[in-house]
């Protein structure tokens, strides 16, 4: 089974975020980056399926040079090869533009299954995987919490619904499954894996290699333009209790008793 997994590198939101100089995005200098959370689960799902059924995982990532770090990590975890969509023209895309570029890169090889995360932790369009599926003409599913490959070219999928419900359905392969966080337990890289990753192939491709005009991808090919970002206004907000822990706790309990009357 040949499996493609799309991984995005995103800012680690645990870090202290600042708005960048032009106000259009956060300042990325000095920010730590990581593999998008749901993509880690997608990668784990792909590796487990390939191990169980034979086959290999190829990881794809679109982004600037730093993205190689995420791809190397995926190789260390067990992916066989990596493809880096690397060109200025690819950057700043919405789900339609990014999905198109990823689909073109994936379509150059034959795959039985494409896995993506369900939502990126930075722009969070929740649609890039579906767009990949549309270009490939394959079925897809979003928020996947279970994948069971069946004989005869079908797959049983568990899709998360709201309020603690899951829908289980069957669809045909090949398919694009957009994996939700929590589906499995992502593994850690071993020292051996990290050493081996250095020798695994990591190819770069640009729009030309994919038969794409730079104007159809990235910011130029997108219908959305982020004009500004800001921290949410604090509005009314919470009544802040500013004191050392023991004192803050005491004041809080007093307020909960006397003001809010909930204790």
């Amino acid at each position: 089974m040949r499996i493609a997994v799309c991984i995005k590198q995103v800012p680690d939101t645990e870090a202290r975020l600042r708005v960048g100089k032009d106000g259009r995005w956060i300042a990325e200098e000095d920010l730590p980056f990581r593999i998008n959370e749901s993509d880690e689960y997608a990668l784990e799902e792909g590796l487990t399926l390939a191990e169980a059924r034979g086959g290999e995982v190829v990881v794809f990532s679109l982004g600037p040079e730093r993205v190689k770090e995420a791809l190397r990590k995926a190789l260390a975890l067990g992916a066989a090869r990596a493809v880096h969509l690397r060109d200025e023209a690819f950057l700043g895309g919405d789900a339609l533009a990014t999905g198109k570029a990823l689909a073109k890169a994936i379509a150059r090889e034959g795959f039985d299954l494409v896995l993506t995360g369900s939502q990126s932790d930075d722009v969070g369009y929740g649609g890039t995987g579906s767009v990949v599926a549309g270009h490939l003409g394959w079925p897809h599913a979003w928020l996947v919490m279970g994948v069971e490959i069946e004989d005869g070219g079908t797959v049983k999928v568990k899709r998360e619904m709201e309020s603690g419900l899951n829908e289980i359905f069957r669809t045909r392969l090949p398919a694009v499954l957009e994996i939700q966080a929590g589906i499995n337990h992502p593994r850690y890289a071993s020292l051996k894996g990290i050493m081996q990753a250095k020798k695994k192939p990591l190819d770069e491709v640009g729009p030309g290699d994919l038969g794409l005009d730079p104007a159809e991808v990235g910011a130029a090919g997108s219908r959305l333009e982020i004009v500004s970002v800001a921290f949410p206004e604090t509005g009314a907000g919470a009544q802040r209790i500013e004191a050392p822990p023991a004192e803050a706790a005491r004041i809080l309990v007093e307020k909960l008793q006397q003001e809010a009357r909930v204790l």
Partner: peptide
């Protein structure tokens, strides 16, 4: 913006050549 909408919205945008503006 429900899970069901997100499941098909991007494909609908693609099919119809529409802009996709989620959430």
């Amino acid at each position: 913006h429900t899970y069901q909408t997100v499941d098909y919205l991007a494909r609908l945008a693609q099919e119809t050549g529409s802009a996709l503006l989620p959430e």
